[in-house]
Design a protein around this nucleic acid. Structure first.
Length: 424
RNA sequence: GGAGAAUUGGCAGAGUGGUCGAAUGCGGCGGUCUUGAAAACCGUUGUCCUUCACGGGACCGGGGGUUCGAAUCCCUCAUUCUCCGCCA
């Protein structure tokens, strides 16, 4: 969420720039500023009463010590109304904090100045397109049929074991998953990312820290017995490592990577979008998560985009990079680049990565701060993350684009991980 | 799952109802001394809210309570350790 100080100091600018996200913030911003004013006034009153209470208490202590019981008891009687007032003001302070928080979390992140205007994904700006769409001839098959033909991914079996959206990878299909995960992790390590293996269940505080809670509660699987959530992305546990942490500026950049399975309820999805591997409830992903100095975060974003581009290139897919428009960039992001690969049999662009700079929006909620060498004041750090990469759509494109009469060709870079160069 | 003990500043560790935001040691930072370093000595060393400032307020695992007053007493939750049980 945005900080109240930013909102107060940049009210007009905030309202103006949020229009790019097709969001009218004027009303919420006024409410937030008024609420903050109320907070201050309440706090002042409370502090005054506490000051008085504290000094009376000290007095009473002195009086008891010097044996002046009568005077002490007289002083006691003065405190009861003060106590009542402080209790009421204290309770009100809690309420006001909650109310202010509720307002602030409804205001999206300010988009970066390079975010183009637009209503929907149709208005995203293609900034780069590389490679040509393969010509598969007439007998090509979509990936779900290839998966069946070579018996490498079993959707029906997943239906039996769990339900729709939980496929079973078999034989060379399973090995391909493992190969991709290892390939992505090895590449990330080479690029200077530190590998972590976080839990895939997180508590409420973590869901809160990265903003999945409370608004996106319905998108996560919830274990009610223990009140834990299955992670929708490694972003959640890996970013929360730094919740309530003050890092030293000299430790920037902080670059982590993690493989986790990801779990998404995808409530409301339907139809051809979810066919085959296009959208699953459980899927594998390697994520990169960075924390950097505010002045360096956009250079880091470029570095991450370049890194992801390298991955897609090595796998040999035709791809394009989109700069998301105001209507498509997420609530919490300031600037996002999407990577799409062309899946030739479906004749569809599939999103395989989304790389974003959240600036201090997540950090504010996480209380993730940094301290400049020799300085006393803490400031909010910037957080960034990106998929590098999500497996299912990579597999979909790989199967479709690399199909031949003899079988499916494994990209060169993966062969040492799979141990075979053809699925047949 | 059962029984017991614990949780204090970057770390170690005092403090069991009243100038305790917290002794002391280590570590960190600054200084004196030194050609330089070490040692020694001196100073400094948490976070947040508020104020132009002086100052005021909150925080001793989280939350709640008792009291004029809580790190200290009570309740509750979490975590850690020890013993027993179960177990990949």
């Amino acid at each position: 969420m945005l900080t109240i100080n930013y909102i107060k100091e940049n009210k007009a600018e905030a309202i103006e720039r949020l229009k790019i996200k097709n969001f009218d913030a004027a009303d919420l911003i006024d409410k937030a500023i008024a609420k903050d004013q109320e907070r201050k006034e309440n706090q002042h009153k409370l502090d005054d009463i506490l000051t008085e209470l504290n000094s009376i208490s000290k007095e009473i202590g002195q009086l008891f010590k010097s044996g002046n019981i009568e005077a002490a008891n007289a002083a006691k009687s003065k405190t009861s109304s003060l106590k009542e007032d402080s209790k009421a003001l204290n309770q009100r302070a809690g309420e006001i904090d909650d109310e202010l928080f509720k307002i602030l979390v409804e205001i999206p992140n300010i988009p970066h100045e390079s975010v183009p205007a637009g209503k929907s994904e149709d208005d995203n700006l293609e900034i780069k397109a590389v490679g040509s769409k393969p010509d598969l001839g007439t007998n090509n098959l979509p990936h779900w049929e290839l998966a069946k033909k070579y018996d490498i991914i079993d959707f029906e079996l997943g239906n039996k074991l769990t339900g729709a959206g939980f496929p079973v990878y078999k034989g060379k299909g399973a090995k391909l998953q493992r190969a991709l995960i290892n390939f992505f992790l090895d590449e990330a390590e080479k690029a200077g990312f530190n590998e972590v293996q976080p839990p895939v269940l997180v508590n409420e505080a973590s869901g809160f820290g990265t903003g999945q809670l409370p608004d996106k509660e319905g998108q996560m699987y919830h274990c009610t017995e223990d009140n834990l959530y299955l992670v929708p992305t490694a972003e959640v546990p890996v970013t929360n490592i730094y919740r309530d942490v003050i890092v030293s500026a000299k430790d920037f950049p902080i670059k982590n990577t993690a493989y986790t399975p990801c779990f998404r309820r995808e409530a409301g999805s339907y139809g051809k979008d979810v066919r085959g591997l296009n959208r699953l409830h459980q899927f594998d992903k390697v994520e990169i998560v960075c924390i950097d100095h505010p002045e360096k975060s956009y250079a880091m974003l470029d570095e991450m985009v370049t890194y992801v581009e390298g991955l897609v290139n090595k796998l040999g897919f035709p791809y394009r990079i989109l700069r998301l428009c105001g209507g498509d960039v997420s609530f919490t992001s300031a600037l996002t680049f999407d990577f799409e690969v062309f899946s030739a049999a479906q004749e569809k662009w599939l999103e395989v990565s989304s790389v974003s700079n959240f600036e201090s929006y997540q950090a504010n909620r996480l209380k993730l701060r940094y301290k400049e060498e020799g300085e006393k004041k803490t400031k909010l750090a910037h957080t960034l993350n990106g998929s590098a990469l999500a497996l299912p759509r990579i597999v979909a494109a790989l199967l479709e684009n690399n199909q031949t009469a003899e079988g499916i060709k494994i990209p060169e870079v993966l062969v040492k991980y799979t141990g075979f160069d053809m699925i047949n």
